[in-house]
């Protein structure tokens, strides 16, 4: 019995030597991966911070839900590459989840604004969005802003329609492995 071609999944995940995962982004997964990433990338906290921001977005906003008696968690996919020769200068980070296709344009526009903003403008956006927060976990846009600020690079997005109503939305980031410069501000 071979219910899933795990070798094909394994082979396709070769570039993502740090993490390749599909499943619910519940509190246990976020804490476990967060701790693992934190310990594995001690020289560079950027990847940990980006993971924490965007994993929470999947948990809250993926329209694919894993529902149990105690939890209602978004399902998504995560892939982090490191260690290969082609990744020697940076981590590759991809995270994705199902979205309502009607929301795709909003997300694309938000990412376009973020990518066209200067660093100072991004910091102003972050402060503006934060001041509007009610203190809940409603922070999808600020998560994108934070990711761009942390990586100091554009957010690359892509989407694949799954049917007439649902698309799979992916965020791709490159995260520089070089040690941050303390006086870069």
């Amino acid at each position: 019995m071979n219910l899933i071609d795990l070798y094909t999944y394994y082979r396709n995940s070769q570039d993502y030597s740090l993490v390749a995962f599909k499943g619910p982004f519940d509190k246990y997964i976020i804490a476990a991966f967060g701790n693992f990433i934190f310990q594995y990338t001690l020289e560079n906290k950027k990847i940990f911070k980006v993971f924490m921001e965007l994993a929470q977005n999947v948990a809250y906003y993926s329209i694919e839900r894993k529902i149990s008696e105690t939890q209602n968690t978004g399902v998504g996919s995560l892939a982090i590459g490191s260690g290969l020769e082609k990744h020697k200068d940076f981590y590759v980070f991809s995270i994705g989840n199902q979205i309502d296709t009607k929301n795709l344009t909003i997300l694309e526009n938000k990412c376009r604004i973020i990518n066209n903003a200067t660093k100072d403008e991004l910091r102003a956006f972050k402060r503006q969005e934060r001041s509007l927060l009610p203190g809940t976990n409603d922070n999808a846009h600020i998560g994108l802003i934070m990711s761009s600020l942390i990586t100091n690079s554009p957010i690359d997005i892509s989407s694949v329609p799954m049917n007439n109503e649902i698309s799979f939305f992916t965020i791709n980031l490159k995260i520089d492995k070089s040690k941050p410069i303390s006086n870069e501000i």
Partner: peptide
């Protein structure tokens, strides 16, 4: 001191 993101966040807190 290597965490420039934290340093920026602290500057933003002081400004806010």
């Amino acid at each position: 001191e290597d965490d420039s993101d934290m340093r920026e966040a602290l500057d933003d807190y002081m400004n806010d």
